[in-house]
């Protein structure tokens, strides 16, 4: 039996196809959090992530008749949000490098270039709890990854998707997903060591 056959969203999707906007609203409520978190961890910006999620849902609604139920509806939705995030990042160009300069030491990217670190969003480092500071550093390290490594890391280690679903979401072979994930983790490991002294 296919994955789509077990899709808990199936009844609501059928209603949406028949023009029921309330059904779509139910789907938005069900999936918005996960979609927001994917976009947020890939962009590092909550505001941008909210915009991306809105665009993704509008696009999904427009194209819902094209959803062929080969995968679960949620996988289809997450593919849309990943694609919207990619488009957003393309427009924004090197997001991690265009922000304000902080007092921290610059960290070299994989390619050897110097990325200027984003300034902390917190009002004062002294006021920040240690845990939040660590999380901000982890996010910084994620932001420094190239897009193709970042999306794999976010989907696997942040969102907990299985390798198979990531392959389907990104249209990549399982081997490619794994090798990108290894490189992404290795880069984050090095980055955290630099920023925090240890991962």
């Amino acid at each position: 039996m296919t994955e789509a056959a077990h899709d808990e969203d199936g009844p609501l999707v059928s209603l949406c196809r028949n023009g029921d906007t309330d059904a779509f609203e139910a789907l938005v409520k069900r999936h918005q959090k996960k979609m927001l978190n994917i976009a947020y961890r890939m962009t590092g910006s909550y505001e941008d992530a909210c915009e991306i999620v809105q665009d993704a849902f509008v696009s999904a609604h427009k194209n819902i008749t094209r959803f062929e139920e080969r995968s679960r509806f949620s996988t289809w939705l997450y593919t849309i949000v990943v694609n919207q995030t990619r488009n957003h990042l393309k427009k924004a160009e090197t997001v991690a490098c265009r922000r304000e300069v902080s007092l921290d030491d610059p960290v070299r990217s994989e390619e050897g270039g110097v990325c200027l670190e984003p300034a902390s969003k917190e009002p004062s480092v002294l006021d920040t709890l240690e845990q939040r500071e660590v999380q901000a550093r982890v996010q910084q390290c994620i932001n420094r990854l190239d897009e193709e490594f970042r999306e794999v890391l976010v989907l696997r280690d942040v969102q907990g998707f299985g390798y198979e679903e990531i392959s389907s979401l990104l249209g990549l072979a399982a081997g490619t997903v794994k090798s990108r994930l290894f490189r992404a983790r290795e880069s984050v490991r090095k980055c955290l060591k630099k920023l925090l002294g240890s991962p």
Binding site: Y40, A49, V134, I142, D157, V158, V188
Partner: peptide, 8 residues
């Protein structure tokens, strides 16, 4: 560390 990131 990555898995421990809070959900927004």
């Amino acid at each position: 560390s990555v898995k421990g990131l809070d959900e927004v």
